[in-house]
Design a binder for these strands. Sequence first.
DNA 1: GTCTATACAAAGATAGAC
DNA 2: GTCTATCTTTGTATAGAC
Lengths: 182, 182
Amino acid sequence: MQASAELFRRNGYTGTGLKQITTEAQAPFGSLYHFFPGGKEQLGDEVIRSSGMLYTQLFDIYLTPAPDLVSGIESTFAGAGETLVETGYADACPIATVALEVASTNERLREATADVFTAWIDKGTETFARFGLSAEDARALTIAVVTSLEGAFVLCRSLRSTEPMAAASATVVARARELQAG
Amino acid sequence: MQASAELFRRNGYTGTGLKQITTEAQAPFGSLYHFFPGGKEQLGDEVIRSSGMLYTQLFDIYLTPAPDLVSGIESTFAGAGETLVETGYADACPIATVALEVASTNERLREATADVFTAWIDKGTETFARFGLSAEDARALTIAVVTSLEGAFVLCRSLRSTEPMAAASATVVARARELQAG
DNA sequence: GTCTATACAAAGATAGAC
DNA sequence: GTCTATCTTTGTATAGAC
């Protein structure tokens, strides 16, 4: 399950074989179908949900303890950039690659990714509201953070540079200042 | 080639079979290896570059003729949102899915996607500079546009909603205003 | 030179031995 | 109940008929 998340994140859903997963996890092949009778799709579903939900806590790590909105956003993007560099631009969003792969091809998995993004947005909205934003503005800013992060991951991983992460950070900060000014 | 681009965009690189491509294109299987001796990787390389470079002209369509920076950006995001809705959230960026899939698994294709993004950034920087921004600011704003679009595609396709596109648009507009004010 | 037919490996899935 | 061995399909790639 841990190994699956890692492989899906780096190689995608269609790019990861079940044999590869059991080999990596040092588990016998048959046991996979014991724990996941629904096969690859059930495994994918559960991996998306668990690894996605795990990321919800990043809001608590980076944003909740921040002294103000702007510094919270800046440290979030800085943290994402560091992770990218430390892992050789491999580890980024746990579900982005899979989300794009399945969006038009597998409805069950598409819904799983949608549920994860929805959870992130709800959590972020709640967190940003504590900084004095209206519910509407807090939601818009959260979506801005998530979309900018996701887009930055695409460009950073392709270009092997953190420049897009910095540009994305400055952009969201500008929006945060604008919303905070009212 | 046209059919390949369509399939790669919707199903990804690993998710698209060569037989699927020749069937869709109503071409005999053998002819694929006649035109692409390098097999799937060469085909992928050429599809990424050609479909990616084709998108460069979107800068000329949406941004160049715009009366000002903000309305140009707004019409770009609005256009992306319309395309998404019209195609049932299938067609978005021609290379995003593939870019994430190959970023850590296929160096040749990763470079192809990087070359495309670099071309977009250079083209956008040039376009934005005409609106009076410094080269540095024009580049930062271009990267903001591309990352926000890419991230919005991820969320919009997963959630089947254009809300992220609207949030991304407002965010980039805020940054554009900030840069223009100096 | 085009294309059909096939080779060979790897995919997902299952049956049956332990 | 766990896992090995196998089945079927699908993938990429190629050889050879026309």
